[in-house]
Every structure is written in structure tokens, then in C-alpha cells.
Design a binder for these strands. Structure first.
Lengths: 358, 358
DNA sequence: GTTAGCACTCGATAGTTCAGAGTGCTAATA
DNA sequence: TATTAGCACTCTGAACTATCGAGTGCTAAC
């Protein structure tokens, strides 16, 4: 069967209507909704065809129709591909201020997304293994411990406390700092191999033993960090959509969003429709690789903070989500993240750091 | 009216029964439940009295009784005051390993509490304003920025990126480091007043202007940190208690737990029943100072990581929560936190840092 | 090809009935 | 005097029924 222009129009009308109401939509409604004048009966005939094509279904006889995953897929692919890059700068300026710390920025972004879209939002930290090391700074903490501050490209700062077991002289610390930075600056975590460490060990002067210990600890702590953090926000938004809260669904969804482990499956997944810039992907219903989200759709996008530091951002909502708006919002957010980073050098004053989040 | 021993027994039986089932409990049930033999009729008479005393109520005529807030209060005060400090070391050893970073430790503790109790858990970071500064380490980052690493008593590490606007020489950094540590080490955030800063400014040698800038930035970033972070875990546990999920309750609760701001009201509150060590407090129903939690009870405790570094930990559940178990669990957790800190010096190897959480 | 008309289906809502749990009261009992 | 048995009464929740209305599919007319 052919999907002609009129059928398409009707399908989209159904999708949009269902988007707003969450109720199955009938032929009479569409008849009034469409710009061309068609009687309900005609619509019914067309609907019957659409149903045969598996683009819409009836939840039960004598209810209106709702779109199937396949119907959504068609709509999403079609409508979103026509969209130009919006390049609307909208409100970027207002939101981004006094934030210098990545973690907090990401959490804030997620929150913003959730509020703007009325869906749940998730965001991952950047994959740090591909980020270049800027410098390392060791400081003695007493008690046989050393504080290692590791700063990477993009001013991503990490603290590790190394437990060496014996105290170390100030001189050794200083020469270690020099040694480390001389060898490691500019490398990514992936590039810091055992060979590199070994060649550093060759070079050290006195205190060979303790220095080796420190080197090993530093190397390990740099290389270990492979689990990217995931933040979520707006989980309670799902309560706005009755189709997501029936039975135990709400509970399961909230659990998934709180635990976050499974969410990793989404950001790892290669979506079915790569969408140009920012690599926007749409998962609809069963396409979502998380069991508790088979009634949801997820839209993800990739942000990049220069130098290949990239992460994912995602919106989780009902299948009848407003895909257009979500994609717009995501693209906007991306632009913001990009621009924050671009003007990083000219950004304003200091801001707090520390392991706090609210 | 007098609350004699028998009435008390019946009240407690009602509370315990209701705890298990979540259903109103009738006279026949209690009659079978009690160790002494009493007919349902007798129980009914007593129940009638208890109702008059506002310790129990009927949700409707011809349903069993459920305890009122007042009834719970009596029970909690009575039962918990009789408890000895358990000093059960139980399973502390297993859980605490390879954690050296406070944030992660706290999150893990919250998760553990949530899993063990089947309620929701919250935990605050320590109040850092009262923690003594151990040392400060400045490092140049380029682009007119300086990384300030601030280490406090208890190895609480914070990074602040200071935006000075102009680059600064290595020499200046070194002398600044010396200056800062000479003046500030051992002081708490509260003690670092404008006077202290002023006296440091007096002392500097050359580059007076830029050094003043840095000093101001450092001082501000130390003093600013007054919002303690709050972590939660196990929010989805509330779905296990139907009385918390009726209507919009679940949504509101989850929202509160996600936003966390309001939770601050609980930890700030002075509870009505200070309970000896660890300062355990129980809020029942209306006593909870958060609107969306008027159907809940909250049990909080204070942990202390030596040197006055303290924070709060809390369990949020239905009013029919198992108070005894919760208090036990909290006390256990406290002991663990204490002991972690005690043996901090002998703890094992390094662990990851970074702003990650899962 | 479109539309009007009509019989039909089915879900949701409201009303009804009914069984069961639980009560309060009264009178009998120890 | 305290306890208990007995009984009438109340109320909830589940099951069942009737009804309404939205929406359909089909047929026949335009």
C-alpha cells in the first residue's frame, strides 16, 4: 500500500493530537483538526489503511487510534530530517554564569533540560580516557599519604589520595612532580602504558623504592578511571504521563533512573538514525535498550568540549513526547555547552569546587 | 484516663501488627496476638479507651484501628529509650574498603542504609566551615587561571579554579603558597576573617596587586562554601508502602527527594527527642518539617568524623516504619563511620578520586 | 472518490447487591 | 467488678449489572 500525502497528513495529525492529550484520537477529531475538509467517514477509511500498514492501532475496538512505534519512527525520521540547524541562541547567556566546574555544569544542564522539556534528563560526564593530561601536582598529606591532583585538558580536575605507607621528603615530592609532568603531560590516559611508567622508573635518582611506589599509584589512579559518571534530573516528571505510571511502571522507571547503571546501555548504543550534527539519536519504545523503558522514547545527543572530550546527554519521556521540541532543546543545549567551552578563557570569576552537589 | 500496662501492651501490639501489614488491625487479631488471654470484646473496650486517649483511630467505622502520631510517639519514646547501645560490630569490615574519598563513602553509606532498611536514605556532607584547614596548594593553569587545592582536616579535598585574569610567575605562586599556609593552616573557614586576609596582604613583597587578587579569590572560595551537600538513595523504596503512594503523594515525595533543598530543613531541625549518643532523633508524621513528608517518619542521626567534623544521616519511611530496626541500623552505620575514620591512618591503598558518582 | 446513515462494539461510569470484617452495646457470667 | 458472649449495626470492597457515549465498519447514496 502506498503512503500518499493525505495519509501522511492524517498520521501526523493523529500523532500530534495524541501528543497533546494522551488519549486515543478518533476520526471526528481529525476531521476538525485537518486544514483540508474531509468528513469523519473518509478519515475512517484512511485510518483503516494506516492501521493495515501498522502505523497506528486501536487499543480496543471502538476507541480512537494511537500511533505505533513504527508510526512514530516514520514521523520522527521525516519531520526531524527537514529541520534546519536552528542556530537560535535563545537564552544561553542567562544560564551560564559562575560555573567553572564541570560536574556542576553538567548537573545544572540536566536540570535545565528536565525543566524545559518536562521529561527526565540524563547526562554523562566526558570520557576522560581520551583527554590529554595537562599537569599533575603531588602534595604530601602526612600519615604516609600523598595528594595527587590531576588536571586534564578542559580543566577537568581530579583528586586522588595515594596511600604510600611511608612519608616522603619534600625534595622527593618536588623531583617527582617534575618527573611526572615531563613524561606525562600531553598524554591521554590510554597512552600512559606500562612502558611509559617503566621508562620513568629508569630515570629516578635516589629513593628508588618509594618513588616506584608513588609512580605505580599515580599510574594506576590515572588509568583506572574508566566508568563515566551519569547524572539525572527531573525523574519525577514521568508522573505527568499516565501511560508511564500504570502498575509498577513508575517504580521501575524511577529505580532505573536512580541506579543509573542501566542508563549506560543507552549512551553506549549506536542509535538507528544518526542525525547530522551533534549526532542526535532517537530511540522509540522497544528500541530503547533498557527493559524498564520500553514504554518510553529516549533522545540522545553528543556534546563535545573541544579536543575530543565528549559525552552524551539524553531526554527520557513517553513515546508521545514532543520530538521536535526535544531535539530543538537538545541542540540548543549543545550549542551552549560548546560556547561555554569556547569562551572558557574569557569567562568570569572563580567558583566553588569541592565534591558538593545539591 | 490512665494508660495502664495492659493498655500499653495492646497499643504496642496494634503498632507492631500495623507495621507488618499496613492494614488497620481489629480486636480479634490482637486477641490472638497477645500473650495473655483476652477476648476480643475486652480488647475492644480497651481499644475504645485508647481511641479516647487519641493514641489510635479508626480510618472509618467498622475498620480496625491504626496508631496516631501520638501513639507512635509514645511507642518510640518508650521502646527506644530502653534500648542499650547495641555495640554490635556486625558486618562493618566487609563494606568499607578501598574508599578514601569522602563523597563516595557517603553515597555508598546512603545506598547501604536504603538497601538494609527498605526505606529511603539521606546523608549530608560534613559541615566544612568548622573544619580546620590543613594546607593549600596553588598551581598555575595558564589562561590567567590558578588551581587552588584546599585540604582540610579529615583529608577533605576541594578544588577551586580561580580566575585571576592574568598569568602569574612560578616564583609568585611559590611564595604565595608559603604565605597562605603560614597564615591559614589550622584555621577553620569561620576563623578566616577579613582581618586575617588583611594582615597577609601587609606582608607580601612585590607584585602586590596580583597577589592581593589571588588572596581575595582564595579567601572567598574558602569562606563561600556554606551549603552542605545532601545525597539520597533508595527513593524508589517508597513504592513499597501503599500509604505513601496514593494520589500524588509518590510524585511529591520523589520530587522532594530529588531536589534535596527541603531536606535541609530536616537536618537543621532540632528534634523533639534527643536520644543520647549519636543524637538520634525521630520525627513522626506532622513533626517532619517538610510538607510532602507529613505522612512519613524520619529518623536522623549525627555522625562525627573526629575533630568536630559532623554531618547528618537520615532514614525516610512510612509512619509505620520499624523504628527499632532503623535506629539499630543507624547506630551501626554510625559506628562504622566512626571506625573508618579511626583507622584512617592504617587504611589500605589508594582509591580513585574525581567528581564521579554513579 | 466522498459522504451520510446506521447498527454494532466496547470501555468507562454509576448504581446495586452482598459478604465479611469489625464495632458498640447489652446482658450474662465468674 | 472485670470479663465475656451474643447480637445488631455499620462500613468497605468486590462482583455484577445497566447505561451512556465515543468510535468504528459497512452499506448505500451522492
Amino acid at each position: 500500500m502506498e503512503l500518499d500525502e493525505r495519509k501522511k497528513k492524517i498520521l501526523y495529525a493523529i500523532i500530534q493530537n495524541y501528543q497533546e492529550t494522551g488519549e486515543p484520537v478518533g476520526s471526528r477529531t481529525i476531521s476538525k483538526y485537518l486544514d483540508v475538509k474531509l468528513s469523519p467517514a473518509t478519515i475512517r477509511n484512511e485510518m483503516s489503511d494506516l492501521e493495515e500498514m501498522e502505523l497506528i492501532v486501536q487499543p480496543h475496538t471502538s476507541a480512537g487510534r494511537i500511533p505505533t512505534d513504527k508510526g512514530y519512527r516514520l514521523y520522527v525520521d521525516d519531520v526531524l530530517s527537514e529541520k534546519e540547524l536552528p542556530a537560535t541562541e535563545s537564552d544561553s547567556g542567562i544560564l551560564v554564569k559562575r560555573v567553572d566546574r564541570l560536574e556542576e555544569l553538567l548537573i545544572r544542564m540536566a536540570k535545565l533540560l528536565a525543566v524545559n522539556t518536562n521529561y527526565a534528563a540524563m547526562i554523562t560526564g566526558p570520557k576522560t580516557r581520551k583527554v590529554k593530561l595537562k599537569f599533575i601536582q603531588l602534595s604530601p598529606m602526612g600519615d604516609g599519604k600523598i595528594l595527587a591532583v590531576i588536571v586534564s585538558e578542559g580543566n577537568i580536575v581530579k583528586n586522588n589520595i595515594l596511600n604510600i605507607g611511608e612519608d616522603i621528603s619534600m625534595d622527593s615530592i618536588l623531583s617527582l612532580n617534575l618527573l611526572l609532568n615531563r613524561h606525562l603531560a600531553g598524554l591521554t590516559a590510554d597512552e600512559i602504558t606500562l612502558d611509559v611508567i617503566a621508562s620513568m622508573k629508569e630515570e629516578d635518582g635516589e629513593h628508588r623504592e618509594i618513588i616506584n611506589k608513588v609512580l605505580d599509584a599515580v599510574a594506576e589512579s590515572i588509568r583506572k578511571e574508566d566508568r563515566v559518571p551519569i547524572y539525572t534530573s527531573g525523574a519525577p516528571n514521568i508522573f505527568k504521563y499516565p501511560e508511564l505510571t500504570g502498575g509498577d511502571k513508575a517504580s521501575e522507571l524511577i529505580t532505573t533512573l536512580e541506579n543509573k547503571e542501566e542508563l549506560g546501555d543507552i549512551v553506549r548504543e549506536e542509535g538507528s538514525s544518526g542525525e547530522g550534527r551533534h549526532d542526535i539519536q532517537v530511540f522509540i519504545g522497544d528500541e530503547v535498550p533498557v527493559e524498564s523503558m520500553k514504554d518510553c522514547s529516549v533522545v540522545t545527543a553528543t556534546y563535545e568540549l573541544g579536543d575530543g572530550v565528549q559525552g552524551k546527554i539524553g531526554i527520557i519521556g513517553p513515546k508521545r513526547m514532543d520530538y521536535e521540541k526535544v531535539v530543538d532543546t537538545l541542540q540548543n543545549t549543545m550549542s551552549q555547552l560548546d560556547s561555554i567551552f569556547d569562551r572558557k578563557n574569557t569567562s568570569d570569576d572563580s567558583d566553588d569546587g569541592g565534591g558538593d552537589k545539591e
